[in-house]
Design a protein around this nucleic acid. Sequence first.
DNA 1: TCGTCATTTCGTATTATGCCGAAATGAGAC
DNA 2: GTCTCATTTCGGCATAATACGAAATGACGA
Lengths: 131, 131
Amino acid sequence: MNGLILLGKALGDPTRVRVLALLRRADLCVCEIADSMEVSMSTLSTHLQTIRQAGLVRTSRQQKWVTYSLEPEVRPLLDQIFEFEEPALKSDRRLERDAQRLNERLGLREEGCCSVGVGGLVKSKNGGTCA
Amino acid sequence: MNGLILLGKALGDPTRVRVLALLRRADLCVCEIADSMEVSMSTLSTHLQTIRQAGLVRTSRQQKWVTYSLEPEVRPLLDQIFEFEEPALKSDRRLERDAQRLNERLGLREEGCCSVGVGGLVKSKNGGTCA
DNA sequence: TCGTCATTTCGTATTATGCCGAAATGAGAC
DNA sequence: GTCTCATTTCGGCATAATACGAAATGACGA
């Protein structure tokens, strides 16, 4: 029954739901998630760990960055759960803001995700030159 | 997003999963759940409240007893979630024991659920003559 | 090999959650 | 109305979860 409980815990926290909602839109590297959510890196990392342990996401490395994506095997289930709650989710301010910031963030991808030398258009949390 | 989080919290605790697993088998009054799970009344009640607030169950009164049943509207979703985790759930000892005790308990229903005067075949938690 | 960052872990304070027994509540039976 | 129980809330403690900044880690590029 452990898997089910891990799934429950993963869904039972606002920050984690926000992460999952973002990942349902696109595969994202951690800095993109962080910038979209305006949460500290350490906090985000903890939640990502929880979500990972629940088997909801997989990670892969692209150059220097780790990309998170929904585990294909659970995506259908996750979709059904989210769609069931769709009416409430659609009108959620926080999720809305996250999505908006994500879109702005994704617009910068052509200039290189998290790439160096973009001219500091967007400053990442710890002073890096992340896109 | 609150509904989704409540759903998550409801699924994110072993005791509550055990309750839901029992309710997937049959509509049950609280004393039947308690006897099947061997957990204190106050503890059980707290979890039932959580599950109720998540909108996963409805209650109805039968004579002196309150019967819990899965909310018809969420049952399909719940089924899909449980079926997704089926392999792990099927081999879970605790759930197995709960189900076995439930079966024993249901066998006594003909003698009247929680009825007085059965001769104390089964003693309920707080000294009553509950079936 | 070294430097640079993205990412994770550590230390800690705060808050939430789980458990139980005992007391309170409340619905039916007489 | 009163009695009887099933059911819920209360008080108190123990454990676990969340948050953050700062320090540690670790992978890639040069």
